[in-house]
Amino acid sequence: MRDNEQATGWSGGKNTFGDFAPGMVHYTDKVLFDEVWERPELSKRDRSLVTVAALTAMGKMDQLQFHLTHAQTNGVTVEELKEALLHLAFYAGWPNNPPQSLSPSWRPDCNVAVALQLVGL
Rank of each mutant, 00 (worst) to 15 (best):
T8R: 01
V114P: 03
A21G: 02
N15I: 00
G23Y: 05
F17V: 13
L64V: 08
S48I: 04
Y91D: 04
G18L: 10
E80K: 03
T56M: 00
N15F: 02
L116K: 12
A113E: 02
E80I: 02
W106G: 10
A89I: 05
L102R: 15
V52G: 02
K82W: 11
W94K: 06
Q6K: 13
A115H: 03
A115S: 12
R47M: 05
V119Y: 00
W37I: 04
E79S: 02
F20I: 10
G93H: 04
V36P: 12
K82G: 08
L88Q: 00
D109Y: 15
V76S: 04
S11H: 06
G120R: 08
V119S: 02
P98K: 02
V112F: 06
L118F: 07
L116I: 09
T56K: 01
L42Y: 11
S43Q: 00
V112I: 10
S105T: 13
L81S: 13
T77L: 06
A7D: 11
T16W: 12
V119H: 00
K82D: 07
P95E: 02
C110A: 14
L102Q: 11
W106V: 09
L32Q: 09
A7P: 11
R2Q: 08
K60Y: 14
S105W: 12
R47I: 07
G75S: 05
G120E: 15
H87N: 11
L81R: 03
A71V: 05
N111K: 08
P104A: 06
G59P: 14
S11Y: 02
A53Y: 03
V25L: 07
K44N: 09
N111I: 05
G9N: 08
L68C: 03
N74H: 11
P99T: 15
G75D: 11
V119G: 00
T28E: 06
H67S: 08
L32A: 15
T69D: 15
D34E: 01
D29S: 01
V31N: 15
A21K: 05
L102T: 13
A54V: 15
K14F: 13
D46N: 14
S103Y: 08
W37N: 01
E5N: 10
A57V: 10
Q6A: 13
C110N: 13
E41V: 12
L64D: 03
L49K: 12
D19I: 09
T28N: 13
F20T: 11
L116V: 07
